[in-house]
């Protein structure tokens, strides 16, 4: 904000220059030091920083479910038990993040603002493809950081108002954008979660089945991946689960999640009895 007040107090020229509807472009012009890409990285290794882990997302009849566990790790240590990794990007889309937590949270904040800024200036929402492309551009800008081991891998999905369906996009660190069909997972536990989703997803499922499947996939990931946390029944910490439908982004409340977690636990208890046979 240092330059926001010019010598005579009026708004600086960058504010009144017509043209861009993008907050990122405006920042790049006016205050590049606030952008993640505007910072040079010093030489040397980056000390251990919290990493966020597994995110799963799947489509259902009339929308999309996205869910993330609540664990962040720094090496072999649990850095946080209640970090949140699934966020509303705007009214009709959700973004989940895996990778270096600090950078990922900054990316989400900037992405949310980018969409809101566009909406306010243009008076309309970006298309779902437009939002995904915008996110891809932002990730591409952080390639240098990714090469230092500070990668951020988001999962983006939303309700496409033009097509009337839920859609899902994955990304790689070079800014590649890939539309996924049916379901996808990112993060350290994604291999196990994807395997679980492959068996538990079916076409035309409804919202509550989709929520249960998402929680089940996270439980499966937590089962085999040390960096993914399962539902914590002692502290009553549940995964963050959100649905995006024609009615917009809704976070599933804790009471419903407690019931779903209990249901999944009961299923597993009967099928995976640990006692000697």
């Amino acid at each position: 904000m240092s330059r926001s007040a010019g010598g005579d107090g009026r708004l600086p020229a960058a504010f009144t220059t017509p043209g861009t509807s993008s907050f990122l472009d405006f920042l790049a012009q006016h205050e590049p030091s606030l952008l993640p890409t505007g910072r040079a990285l010093p030489p040397g290794d980056v000390p251990a920083a919290p990493h966020a882990t597994t995110i799963v997302a799947l489509t259902f009849d009339g929308g999309l479910v996205m869910a993330g566990d609540r664990r962040a790790t720094a090496g072999s240590m649990i850095a946080s038990r209640h970090i949140e990794k699934v966020f509303p990007a705007d009214d009709y889309s959700a973004v989940g993040i895996a990778g270096t937590a600090g950078l990922a949270l900054e990316l989400v904040r900037l992405f949310q603002l980018e969409l809101e800024h566009y909406e306010k200036i243009e008076g309309t929402l970006l298309s779902l493809d437009g939002k995904a492309n915008r996110l891809a551009t932002m990730i591409r800008g952080s390639l240098a950081l990714a090469m230092q081991g500070l990668a951020v891998v988001p999962l983006f999905g939303g309700f496409d108002l033009d097509r009337g369906t839920g859609r899902l996009f994955s990304f790689d660190v070079t800014g590649g954008r890939y539309e996924e069909t049916d379901f996808h997972a990112v993060g350290s536990g994604s291999v196990f979660a994807r395997g679980s989703l492959k068996k538990l997803w079916w076409p035309g499922m409804n919202a509550s089945d989709a929520v249960r499947t998402a929680v089940h996939a996270l439980v499966d990931a937590a089962d085999d991946d040390a960096a993914t946390g399962g539902p914590d029944t002692v502290r009553r910490i549940w995964p963050v689960v959100a649905t995006v439908t024609a009615d917009g982004y809704r976070r599933v409340d804790d009471a419903a999640l407690a019931a779903v977690a209990a249901e999944v636990e009961a299923l597993r208890r009967t099928s995976e009895g640990g006692e000697q046979r």
């Binding site: 017509p18 907050f23 904040r109 800024h117």
Partner: peptide, 18 residues
């Protein structure tokens, strides 16, 4: 319209910085 856009930029920048 020019002032409106400047206002949105001002507010969003302030909200992002603080």
């Amino acid at each position: 319209e020019n002032l409106r856009v400047a206002g949105v930029r001002y507010a969003d920048l302030r909200g992002y910085s603080y």
